[in-house]
């Protein structure tokens, strides 16, 4: 993958957004950012496919169980198909990460010298404790909500909860796959500025992958519409609480550049 003038312009804008105005946009950074933009777009499509797949599974169940004139029998096939789809989406996510890694590796081959820091980054730096705790808390909250709904007497709600649990499992697996890749992908840098940019990219990617976009939409897609049950109130509280907590976490977290400078500076 080669960088274009537009990619270089976007790289300059990215550097300015992170307060790295003294750093010139290099083809290396432009190429890496362009790959991430494309992977991010594809990743959002994967999440949309998961939400649509879960919604279709739920819709199929409602159509076939007699609410809209169906046979009244529950079928195990749609949840199995959804589980298969979820596994496929997690694998697709891993492939996307692998592609980004390949672009990085090819860009690194052009560097006459390589730079790294001698202290490995871990989850406390990338994405950082507040974001890690937030991701675990929101995911746990959503799983507890789905598991509680699974104990409801209404079969339709139980079915929705099962679909939700499958989706959540997929989301959790996707986050783990992505975070593992972000923490283990090789550094691509040839000086201090590109080393800082490398860490900023990691922090940005990690914080984005722990933002619960799907957790906010899945419960709503699957549980709303079955009357005003406590699980609906619960999912509303989850969405609003998670949004508020995200604002607080983002306000309380150090900017990605500060994390990068701390991670790469001598202790």
């Amino acid at each position: 993958m080669t960088s274009t003038t537009a990619d270089l312009r976007q790289a300059a804008a990215w550097l300015a957004r992170h307060g790295l105005t003294g750093t010139p946009p290099t083809p290396l950074l432009a190429t890496r950012l362009a790959a991430r933009r494309r992977a991010r777009g594809a990743g959002l499509v994967l999440l949309a496919v998961l939400v649509i797949g879960a919604a279709l599974t739920q819709a199929y169940e409602q159509l076939s169980t007699g609410r809209f004139g169906g046979s009244g029998r529950h079928s195990h096939l749609p949840p199995l198909v959804l589980a298969g789809l979820t596994v496929g989406l997690v694998l697709a996510r891993a492939q996307l990460d692998r592609w980004v890694r390949r672009v990085d590796r090819q860009a690194a081959l052009t560097l006459p010298r390589r730079v790294a820091y001698p202290i490995p980054l871990d989850w406390r730096a990338v994405p950082g404790r507040p974001h890690a705790v937030y991701a675990v808390a929101t995911l746990t909250g959503a799983v507890v909500l789905a598991a509680s709904a699974y104990t409801a007497p209404d079969a339709a709600v139980r079915y929705g909860a099962l679909v939700l649990l499958i989706g959540l499992l997929g989301v959790a697996a996707g986050i783990v796959v992505q975070l593992h890749d972000i923490l283990t992908r090789p550094i691509v840098a040839d000086d201090e500025a590109s080393l800082t940019a490398d860490v900023v990219l990691r922090v940005e990617d990690a914080r984005e992958c722990t933002t619960p976009v799907v957790l906010w939409s899945l419960p709503a897609v699957l549980l709303f519409g079955d009357g005003l049950g406590w699980w609906n109130a619960g999912s509303l509280v989850l969405v609003l609480g998670a949004a508020l907590a995200l604002c607080l976490v983002q306000r309380g977290s150090a900017p990605a550049v500060a994390v990068a400078r701390h991670a790469t500076s001598p202790r």
């Binding site: 790294a116 001698p118 202290i119 490995p120 090789p186 202790r267």
Partner: peptide, 27 residues
């Protein structure tokens, strides 16, 4: 690495990256 250990940039007890990881980072 020796210089950074001697001048305490890398403090006693600091965990270094794995050999494989550092090899990948530095090409």
């Amino acid at each position: 690495l020796a210089r950074q250990i001697q001048d305490h940039t890398l403090a006693v007890g600091t965990r270094l990256p794995t050999i494989r990881r550092l090899a990948a980072d530095l090409g």
